[in-house]
């Protein structure tokens, strides 16, 4: 399964490390990653790919939401099809 993970919030030390560590724990492979500061706010977009058999979507979602809560960041994971549908002709 492929999904888009977005991380938005106040910049702080160790966000990339924490997120990628959590993804590794979930057996999610990062196949694309981009990061920038937009209007002072840390913004990272990752594309993750994993085997549904190993990690369910719900598990990944809960784990990332928990991490977001602990770091005071908004972390979302959404299936890529949504973005394709809205943005591509």
């Amino acid at each position: 399964m492929k999904a888009i993970i977005t991380v938005i919030g106040q910049d702080q030390i160790g966000i990339v490390a924490a997120v990628s560590k959590q993804l590794a724990n979930l057996n999610i492979n990062i196949i694309d990653i981009t990061q920038t500061l937009m209007h002072g706010s840390f913004t990272m977009v990752l594309m993750g790919e994993w085997d549904d058999g190993q990690t369910s979507f719900a598990t990944a979602q809960t784990a990332l939401a928990d991490l977001g809560k602990s770091l005071n960041l908004d972390i979302r994971i959404q299936r890529q099809a949504l973005f394709d549908a809205i943005q591509k002709l």
Binding site: T6, I8, T34, V45, Q80, Q87, K88
Partner: peptide
């Protein structure tokens, strides 16, 4: 897909 489009979609929601 561009980051801008992804962020725009998230903002819409």
């Amino acid at each position: 897909m561009e980051t801008k489009q992804i962020l725009e979609t998230i903002q819409m929601i």
